[in-house]
Amino acid sequence: MSTDSNSKVQGSKGSKQAVQTTGHAWDGDIQEFNNPLPTWWVWAFYATIVFAVIYWVLYPAWPIGRDYTKGVMNDIEYTDASGKTVTRHWNTRSLLDKEMVQAKAEQKKYLDQLAAASIEEIAKDDEKSNFAYSMAKVLFADNCAACHQPGGAGVVGSYPNLADDDWLWGGSFKDIKTTITNGRNGYMPSFKAALSSEKIDDVAEYVLSLSKHKTDAAKTARGKAIFNGQEGGCYYCHTKAGTGMVSMGSANLTDSIWTLADVPSADTLEAKKAAVKQVIMNGVNRKMPVWKERLTDTQIKILAFYVHQLGGGK
């Protein structure tokens, strides 16, 4: 490759213009070459200056004390939530406000459809359920995930798992909606004072036998008597079969799901029993807050749809 750097000077272009200097000389002989810029570049530079001046006039630009120049002919107009027409000078905040108003209007089309439909209708319709799903996912993360966890798995001992098929207060659309709307009070009395330590131990043995754990026969029999008798009175709420009652929110003790005593993760029967005994001794007092004051009816409706499908619904 022999690109001759001198060719430019000798060539047809350069022949008329020899290399120039600025004419300044320092220390006698140090001179500065004058390497001129292309015309288009210079004009592009002037164009940016013109652009800047136009920009200053049209948009907020110069600070003046605590104020600033607002620019002219840049009004942003929109109708706010109360139906008032708002006119503001251009800035990114008013632009955002305007876009939020427009986005809300766009969203309203779908929200109106959801408001008019029942949960069953939403579940049947692909478009509606997809919209409800993605919207409720955000609502769930904002409002419910703090306790029930982002995936709805809850925390054993504190907050029920919503992703399984066990529902303390019922798993129908209607039940879930009621739960969210009005909240729930989960209560079980403490038996520390009423029952002796041995008796609590027996009851725990019996409770574990309900979910097919291998337990001591004698202790289980004693525990059963207390559970189903007046002494313990556990069957008032948990029923004689131990299956619990949806109307009371009392737990089903016969299945594999534990919301308070962490039986599944305990290794030995002793440890499982200790977990159950803790609950019997201390009782339960947990609260699901009321949401109707904070969420709209439609929001509660789609949340119920979302929660219902987390575990496959019932």
Partner: peptide, 18 residues
Amino acid sequence: QIRQPLYVVLSNGTIQNR
């Protein structure tokens, strides 16, 4: 696969993945 929760134990003891 839904990873939160990764699995759920159902009332009859079966495992559910989503």
